[in-house]
């Protein structure tokens, strides 16, 4: 008796991330087209497509730079110089942000499949030795740990797509929190905004670091806790400990030399 054959489910592959990149580029194109800029917009999408097809590692950063250039040009064309304007929640901005985040995330996930997922370890080498430069010695190439296409799941794709609007809304919230048209001790608003962003990031990092450190200390096992305490003691008394231990080491050698 033959077993009934279940229809094989189509597995997501790298193609799906490429499609997501293409879709994100389309969103970017539409959003910027709405702002009334065609030639630079087309150039931006073309560069994005080229980065995708050529598997360029710097592709996402290049696209971000291009979008920055386009937006600066639109701003310059509208206001003839840097100008601040108050913005409410605009659907075009949300679409643009979602498109950019989608492209960046999908492209980096593709890089994990095409290039390497984990940092390269120079100790792990395999293959025929070759020179990177004529004056370098021959070495086998470093093994790159890539992610297999079969490991892509529908959930991660769906999760990424569904979370895109959330990041766009988060950007809007951050923008709303940023002080605008406010002067403080004679600083122009732009400088003040940069200071606020820098301080926000620094404080945020410190708080998160503190929280995770506390969490780690609470989770530590007995040996790790002993190591932490030992290190704390050593930090406080290393001068005294060093002096005592050196004296003991010297005394040991002297004793041996005297033949005692």
């Amino acid at each position: 008796m033959t077993e009934p054959q279940t229809p094989k489910q189509p597995q997501p592959a790298a193609f799906h991330y490429q499609a997501l990149c293409g879709l994100s580029l389309a969103l970017i194109f539409l959003a910027q087209l709405n702002q009334g800029e065609l030639p630079l917009n087309v150039l931006c999408v073309l560069i994005g497509t080229l980065c995708l097809l050529s598997r360029l590692k710097l592709g996402p950063i290049l696209l971000l730079v291009m979008i920055g250039g386009v937006q600066w040009w639109i701003q310059f064309r509208m206001f003839r110089g840097p100008a601040q304007r108050a913005r409410a929640l605009e659907i075009v901005d949300v679409v643009l942000c979602a498109g950019v985040v989608g492209f960046v995330a999908a492209h980096y996930r593709l890089q994990s499949i095409w290039q390497n997922m984990l940092p390269l370890d120079p100790r792990r080498r395999s293959g025929t030795p070759r020179r990177r430069f004529p004056w370098f010695r021959k070495q086998p190439p470093i093994m790159a740990e890539k992610r297999a296409q079969e490991q892509i799941t529908p959930f991660e794709l769906a999760g990424l797509v569904l979370s895109l609007p959330a990041w766009a809304v988060a950007a809007q919230i951050l923008w709303a929190l940023l002080p605008k048209q406010v002067e403080f001790i004679g600083l122009p608003p732009r400088v003040l905004q940069m200071i606020v962003v820098a301080w926000g990031l620094a404080v945020g990092f410190l708080v998160m670091r503190g929280v995770f450190s506390l969490w780690r200390f609470r989770q530590a096992d007995a040996a790790t806790a002993q190591l932490i305490l030992q290190d704390a003691l050593w930090k406080e008394t290393r001068g005294e400990q060093r002096r005592i231990q050196r004296w003991l080491a010297w005394w040991k050698w002297e004793k041996r030399e005297r033949g005692e």
Partner: peptide, 13 residues
């Protein structure tokens, strides 16, 4: 450069 839209994009990313 006070490019508001691009600030939003950077914030999102």
């Amino acid at each position: 450069t006070a490019t508001a839209t691009f600030v939003l994009v950077c914030f999102a990313v």
